[in-house]
């Protein structure tokens, strides 16, 4: 049994999700304690519990301590079974964070899977659907994996009600992934996504964003109205390079001005370009596990975040791999995973 201190590093949901995935994949029983111990509301919240239960269902795992607010959890994983699944997350919890936890597991299943996820698709403190579809998945495709995703309906905080369909085929070949250079910029696009909102909110956000980044890049702007059970707004900027696409998003909400939303997006883009990162911080956190499970690889990113550090520790507990951060400059670092 592998025991993980859930309060280590970022000490939140990330360490939990990575541990769950690895336990299911390696078949090693997991005991995780001090779950989110240093958070204002410690223990398993509803969205975490949804991840725990989903992973356990897929791997026929036995659970102990899988209760709301529980700070200790044991998973005794069994056989990973592919097939059709449907997971519903309350409280507009992110379907993408759940997808992030179960996707690696499904790569080791006995057959292809089709998973329907209901909940939030564009929520704060989680990757938005567009990031998952156009940034994360293409990287996995490059590694030889066959994964499809589609969004049937958008789900915003707090109403949720979104639907995402994830199709995963078991991994057959693993290729190394190397992202050391961005390559040529092919397209810069900014999208203001809205549901049930005044159109002017979207156009204003785009205008302010473009004005703020005028002269840096020529932006294609798009205001998109989507159907959803609640109202919601996200502004996101995509930079499609030859070797990868990066995406930066800011969620709008009641009480936050259009200007603030646009300004936050601007600073995220400026930071990425200015620091010279190839792989942005969020993508860097998420790529580490697939690389460790597969054939390894490397990428150029910023200084390791707490998320990256805790991921590295958890991975090394379960897998015999070498994960190194090589400091290239004050703002740059090369992350290398070696089998």
């Amino acid at each position: 049994m592998i025991t993980i201190d859930g309060s280590f590093g970022e000490g939140g949901g990330q360490i939990l999700r990575t541990s769950l995935s690895l336990s299911a994949i390696t078949g090693q029983p997991l005991h995780i304690e001090n779950i989110r111990a240093n958070r204002k509301k410690p223990g398993l919240m509803r969205q975490h519990l949804a991840c725990v239960k989903a992973v356990a269902e897929i791997c026929h795992g036995e659970l102990d301590g899988a209760e709301l607010n529980s700070q200790a959890l044991t998973l005794k994983p069994g056989m990973i079974q592919g097939g059709d699944y449907r997971f519903i997350i309350g409280s507009a919890g992110s379907t993408l964070l759940l997808a992030q936890a179960i996707l690696p597991v499904l790569l080791f299943a006995d057959r292809p899977s089709r998973v329907v996820l209901e909940g939030g698709t564009h929520t704060m403190q989680a990757p938005i659907f567009d990031f998952f579809e156009r940034v994360y998945l293409p990287c996995l495709h490059k590694m030889g994996l066959e994964i499809e995703v589609s969004m049937e309906r958008a789900g915003f905080y707090p109403a949720g009600g979104g639907m995402v369909v994830l199709s995963v085929k078991p991994a057959r070949v693993w290729r190394q992934l190397s992202l050391i250079e961005r390559g040529e910029l092919q397209e810069a696009r900014v999208t203001a996504l809205g549901s049930g909102l005044d159109q002017s909110i979207l156009t204003d956000e785009l205008k302010i964003f473009q004005a703020g980044l005028a002269g840096v890049l020529p932006w294609q702007a798009l205001a998109r109205d989507v159907e959803s059970s609640g109202s919601g707004n996200v502004l996101f900027a995509e930079l499609a390079y030859e070797n990868l696409t990066e995406l930066f998003s800011v969620c709008g909400r009641y009480g936050l001005s259009r200007k603030s939303v646009a300004k936050s997006a601007i600073s995220l883009v400026k930071q990425y370009i200015g620091q010279g990162w190839v792989v942005g911080q969020h993508l860097a956190d998420q790529l580490m596990l697939p690389l460790a499970l597969g054939a390894g690889g490397n990428y150029l990113t910023g200084r390791p975040t707490l998320h990256a550090e805790s991921n590295r520790q958890v991975i090394r507990r379960f897998l015999d791999v070498k994960v190194d951060f090589k400091k290239m400059s004050d703002s740059l670092c090369e992350m290398e995973v070696q089998k």
Binding site: K41, G43, Q47, N69, S91, P158, A159, Y254
Partner: peptide, 17 residues
């Protein structure tokens, strides 16, 4: 959905079900 509604808010709590 932009406003606090006590009955619905109860169903939104992360640590309550």
């Amino acid at each position: 959905w932009s406003f606090w509604r006590p009955s619905v808010a109860l169903a939104m709590q992360d640590d309550l079900h």
